[in-house]
Design a protein around this nucleic acid. Structure first.
Length: 754
RNA sequence: GCGUCCUUAGCUCAGUGGUAGAGCGUUGCAUUCACAUUGCAAAGGCCGCAGGUUCGAUACCUGCAGGACGCACCA
């Protein structure tokens, strides 16, 4: 009891406790007592990006998962919590490029190899910081299984998956319209776009004096790429023009315009007629596809005009817009100019304004039919035709995967309905390089007939694809036997590898023991903001690759905001550093503050005052424990003594509380469980039971004293167990001092049965 | 446009078909005996508004208002 100093000082104990846990080996499920008899319980940790340091959102995620894992471990499960980190392709690359700019250099100056060395060095450093922070939070994960989304094993998994999907025709290379980020010089997926409202002008004009229909646009410069005009099929104003074709000249550029009827057109907007620019608008692209209109690209990757030898060529789009507007005015073609508000698409990472344009990219087809040889997905039989979209929908619809809170299921379905093919290639260097090689001599065989010189696609035949070193790239072209092969320069969207996380971490494509035992996992715990990015992609990948679900329950937490409800951000400077919190108040206090009152799917406001409150609670636990332990010293508690009626009642209440807390844990109501045990310990145990025991202990009756000591000991030990998932450090520290038969560490103590 | 969520004590939020709870904060009192990182007590709420269902609504339904958010569109 010598280290039982008066106030509880978290920093005197937490580091030592974590070391003690690691030494016990119990975070590795095989080391648990009677491991083979235990039923597996698995959580794969959402891997933090190696872009920097942990924030409060990570702390929340770690706490929730640690609570689940510690609880299940105490419940006798073979609990595996598998940790890892994410290479976060575009985010990490952007971070390092920023540093390079400061040094006055760029990735192109360094070259691909040297640049990747720089990124890897940064990622390594960032990784080490993150791991030490995860440990500070008390996370009881199995470090022997730690994974990285870009390590050897995960690379093999990614290549294997790519090839499998390619062979099934689910991955295709296509010249399609994509979201191009001129600032980041890469494509991005629909989900990586953020919309910003800006003021814009809507111009109403005619292509030429002879053209019968005026059209409205906010982007006159793109009209040079128009190949059609679309009107609503029922619009009486334009019936006579539908199907007609016109040859005309617009700013010196010859245009061939066909008038088509399409229900996408809103007759109430503008003039009710849309100039169709298939190359630079997603909807126009689709209209063009439906009506067989041509595609003319007029904007290049630098967001500059490309119109042959026209003077516009080389102008930035904004300048070109002014030029065109001025010209329209001078030609008397401009009929109206009005101010409107417009949502403009920007890239989440770089802030660049997105220019949709057609590019040759790799896509995952979400609506294409294929069959799963072995399916355990409800509603999709083995061998039956299905699509990736159906897998994503069915697994949730059937209840095989349950989302908490439930209402997010509606949001999820809504998103799936609108899902288009997923563009997975990125023009960046850090990431999984696309495992596809091109044969240069076979260039003319390019099936797409696009961009000569890249050649036909060659995908390696071996079942297991090539390790990342590239030493085993295909040596000859199967068609012409040339050895002149070059790998696709692009890398994969980071969510491609993240989507495989639940099974790539367990050894897939090998049919490992881990995969058999721990998959499907039990819970995926993550933030609701990546429901689409990640959760849906995991369901897609797992359904396709394994014919099963990746997890049974998805628990979605909200965003941790500051005391005023604002998002924590660097620019506001209102962020709370979880490691600072652990140092100042103790990791336990930070954990409790994050959990109590925090319902799933809802954002929470976190203040230092709240954390301070739980620091006080830790102190309360500490002092109450000191009192109990001092009081029961030398008492014979080997057998239950005769209990007084009030002690019997107190123990009955303890059982009731334990039962309620257990029910809450089972129902994922951690916010209630934590609050109940907090309230019980402080206001029932410490304030009432303990105060009454003081009187008894000073009294005459030895029998009553023994009854009181037994009761205090039972309530203390049970409370420590109930509190352990929430406040692992202090409970384990006190536990060291508790006299108990066959005592081991609290990590593997059985949960109080109720 | 489609969709979701929220509106309860000063603040942050729980909650239930039988006229409300927690934490923090506020106010008053208490102090050598586990703990002032404490204890005891108090103040504080027509549970957003209007209808409906019901014996009874904060809770269920409809509408409205305000707020947050997702998706699509924005030609």
């Amino acid at each position: 009891m010598s280290d039982f100093s008066k106030p509880y000082n978290a920093k005197d104990h937490e580091e030592r406790m974590y070391a003690k846990w690691l030494e016990s080996g119990y975070f590795t499920p095989e080391n648990l007592p009677n491991a083979d008899k235990r039923e597996p319980y698995t959580i794969i940790m959402p891997p933090p990006n190696v872009t920097g340091v942990l924030h409060m959102g990570h702390a929340l995620m770690l706490t929730l998962q640690d609570i689940m894992i510690r609880y299940q471990r105490m419940r006798g499960k073979r609990a595996l919590w598998l940790p890892g980190t994410d290479h976060a392709a575009i985010a990490t690359q952007a971070r390092v490029e920023k540093d390079l700019v400061k040094e006055g250099t760029s990735r192109h100056d360094l070259g691909r190899e040297e640049f990747l060395r720089r990124v890897e060095a940064f990622a390594k450093k960032s990784h080490d910081t993150i791991i030490s922070q995860v440990k500070t939070m008390g996370a009881s994960c199995d470090w022997t299984r730690e994974a990285y989304t870009l390590d050897e094993d995960r690379s093999l998994a990614v290549r294997t998956m790519f090839k499998k999907m390619y062979d099934d025709g689910l991955i295709y290379r296509g010249n399609r319209i994509v979201n191009w980020d001129p600032k980041g010089q890469t494509t991005i997926s629909d989900d990586e776009i953020v919309y910003e409202e800006r003021a814009a002008k809507l111009y109403t004009f005619r292509y030429s004096k002879d053209f019968p229909i005026p059209i409205a646009t906010t982007r006159p410069e793109t009209k040079i790429g128009d190949t059609g005009v679309a009107v609503h099929p029922d619009d009486v104003r334009y019936q006579e023009f539908i199907g007609k074709e016109y040859d005309l000249e617009f700013y010196g550029v010859p245009l061939h315009i066909k008038v088509v009827a399409d229900k996408e057109v809103d007759p109430a907007f503008g003039t009710g007629a849309v100039g169709v620019t298939p190359a630079h608008s997603h909807t126009d692209w689709e209209i063009a596809e439906r009506h067989g209109l041509g595609v003319t690209q007029v904007i290049d990757e630098q967001a500059r005009m490309m119109v042959g030898d026209n003077p516009l060529t080389g102008q930035k789009v904004a300048d070109a817009r002014a030029t065109i507007v001025e010209w329209l005015g001078s030609e008397n073609l401009l009929e109206k100019e009005e101010d409107i508000k417009q949502n403009i698409a920007t890239a989440e990472r770089t802030g660049g304004v997105i220019e949709p344009m057609p590019k040759l990219q790799w896509f995952v087809a979400v609506n294409k039919e294929f069959s799963l040889p072995h399916s355990s997905i409800e509603g999709i039989a083995s061998g039956a035709k299905t699509t990736l979209k159906e897998i994503m929908r069915r697994t949730v619809e059937s209840g095989q995967i349950k989302i908490i809170p439930e209402h997010f299921e509606k949001t999820y379905f809504h998103w799936i309905e609108n899902l288009r093919d997923w563009c997975i290639s990125r023009q960046i260097w850090y990431g999984h390089r696309i495992p596809v090689w091109y044969c240069l001599p076979c260039a003319e065989l390019d099936t797409l007939g696009y961009k000569p010189g890249t050649g036909e696609t060659v995908v390696p035949r071996s079942e297991k694809l090539i390790p990342i070193s590239g030493t085993e790239t295909p040596t000859t072209c199967p068609k012409c036997h040339s050895t002149s092969l070059s790998q696709d320069p692009d890398t994969l969207d980071t969510w491609f590898s993240s989507g495989m996380w639940t099974f790539s971490t367990l050894g897939w494509p090998e049919n490992t023991q881990d995969l058999k035992l721990y998959h499907p996992t039990n819970v995926l715990e993550t933030g609701y903001e990546i429901l689409f990015f990640w959760v849906a992609r995991m369901i897609l990948m797992t359904g396709y690759g394994l014919g099963e679900i990746p997890f049974r329950t998805v628990y979605l937490h909200g965003t941790v905001r500051d005391a005023k409800g604002r998002k924590m951000s660097k620019s506001l400077g209102n962020g709370i550093d979880p490691v600072d919190i652990a140092k100042t108040f103790g990791a336990d206090a930070g954990r409790m503050a994050l959990i109590v009152g925090n319902t799933p799917g809802t954002d929470m406001a976190l203040s230092e005052d709240k954390i301070k409150g739980y620091k006080h609670f830790a102190n309360k636990i500490w002092n109450a424990s000191r009192f109990v332990l001092t009081s029961i010293e030398n008492a014979d508690l080997s057998h239950e003594p005769k209990l007084t009626p009030s002690d019997t009642a107190a123990l009955a209440e303890l059982r009731r509380v334990a039962k309620e807390v257990t029910d809450d844990m089972e129902q994922f109501r951690f916010y209630l469980a934590a609050e109940k045990i907090y309230h019980y310990f402080w206001h029932t145990f410490a304030d009432t039971i303990l105060e009454e025991a003081k009187l008894t202990l000073r009294g005459e009756s030895v029998e009553e004293q023994l009854s009181a000591k037994w009761t205090l000991h039972t309530i203390l030990t049970t409370s420590l167990k109930l509190l352990h998932p929430f406040m692992p450090f202090i409970t384990e520290t006190v536990w060291e001092q508790v006299p108990q038969k066959n005592k081991t560490i609290l990590v593997v103590e059985p949960w109080p049965h109720s």
